[in-house]
Design a protein around this nucleic acid. Sequence first.
DNA 1: ACGAGACATTGACGGCTGTCAATATAGAGG
DNA 2: CCTCTATATTGACAGCCGTCAATGTCTCGT
Lengths: 119, 119
Amino acid sequence: MSTALALLTPADSAACCSPLSAQPLTTEQAEQVAPLMKALADPVRLRLMSLIASHDGGEACVCDLNDAFDLSQPTISHHLKVLHEAGLVDRDKRGVWVYYRARQQALAAIGALIGCTPI
Amino acid sequence: MSTALALLTPADSAACCSPLSAQPLTTEQAEQVAPLMKALADPVRLRLMSLIASHDGGEACVCDLNDAFDLSQPTISHHLKVLHEAGLVDRDKRGVWVYYRARQQALAAIGALIGCTPI
DNA sequence: ACGAGACATTGACGGCTGTCAATATAGAGG
DNA sequence: CCTCTATATTGACAGCCGTCAATGTCTCGT
């Protein structure tokens, strides 16, 4: 959800490089951001995220994603659920197909914390 | 180690925003970066990293770090080991004290992948 | 040499994670 | 309705993770 994002966007909008190196994170901040990173800290989910984000229209259908891996369909479905529950992707069911869309703000939130995002 | 970094720095130096959204990660790239993110995807280690990175001189002694948490000394030592083995911090023993230093390149590598780092 | 302080390692424990096979659900088309 | 296709859920299993208490290792004073 956007609760994690709210913690990052307000004050650090102006500052440029790595809040992580600028001042220590509060316990609260760390506990909000860690789940986002944890959701992304898996090879399969990293590839899923990049496949979704770089796909035409910024969204991808599960059927496309399944083919990119040597994993069972339920496993991919599980990883997508993890990404979704972390607030990293949106779910959109259209007919028989389900489309996942990358939430750029969530990615930006992590990027802003770790590295540096020009907001 | 810098093996993970090497995969990211070469081509994407020029491009600005989120390689993750620009083109899909290869399996190899994902498997190299995921461990770095996994090492950082913990509230305690996130705070440790930020405490180290934002400390005077870019380094911090374990004794300082211990006091910032309500955790046992071995637990902090364990987390520092995880960060160190992931290549996120350097270890420097000086006398009785051990100093940990943030490896900016490693942070930048993750940041460049997820968000956007002006290199 | 000895004691004390700073940090690491070991061993143990409950809890979480990634994976699959099997099964369920839910639209679309006939 | 019935079946097919697309996706999700459940249940099970091995393996990893975060934590602590106990112990080990190193280094500086004395």
